[in-house]
Amino acid sequence: MTYIGIIFTYVFVSNLVLTQFLGLCPFIGVSNKTENAVGMGFAVMFVMSTASLITWAFQHFVLIPLNVVFLQTVTFILVIASIVQLVEMVVRKTSPPLYKALGIYLPLITTNCGVLGIALISVNEDYNAVESFLAGLSAGLGFLVALLFMSAIRERLELERVPKYLRGTPIAFISGGLMALAFMAFDKALLANIIGA
């Protein structure tokens, strides 16, 4: 697949949150304010792209040569947890304002299934290093886009009169569903038309 194809696929066609249900917890958890959504979105984007690249390296230079592919899940989750830890330390040292903005979201990313999800997807699809990195980056971008839209919707919903039992997360899920419905317009046929594949 071409690089543009990969970007378009993971930002729109297979948007992790809206079509694969990966990373739903933070999607609902931090989407109540736009600024939080932006912070979380960028943090996830960074972790996803580095994690896909590093897990790719682990898969090809450690797991396959040693014939221990069954340790994939354990290895990947440890790699992701260490990257998150590392990012947290680096950001804290180099840029205190950024740390202040992203700090609280960073630990949450370890349990964002999207990060492990995109790493596993890249391995399953047999991507090379560049493709894995791009898949991670665009999956993160897709997450950011979905989170941003969702927070915009939720900020407006707060001013609306919502039935008592639907307030909070239920209405967020329903509006998320309607947004996912709109994203269904981006399908494989449209992708083929755009990149001419």
Binding site: Y165, T169, P170, I174, G176, G177, M184
Partner: peptide, 18 residues
Amino acid sequence: FPPGALIVLGFLQALFRR
């Protein structure tokens, strides 16, 4: 499809709250 899942979940959540 995925949108249906989110919508069903939303309504079931409201029902369980009730």
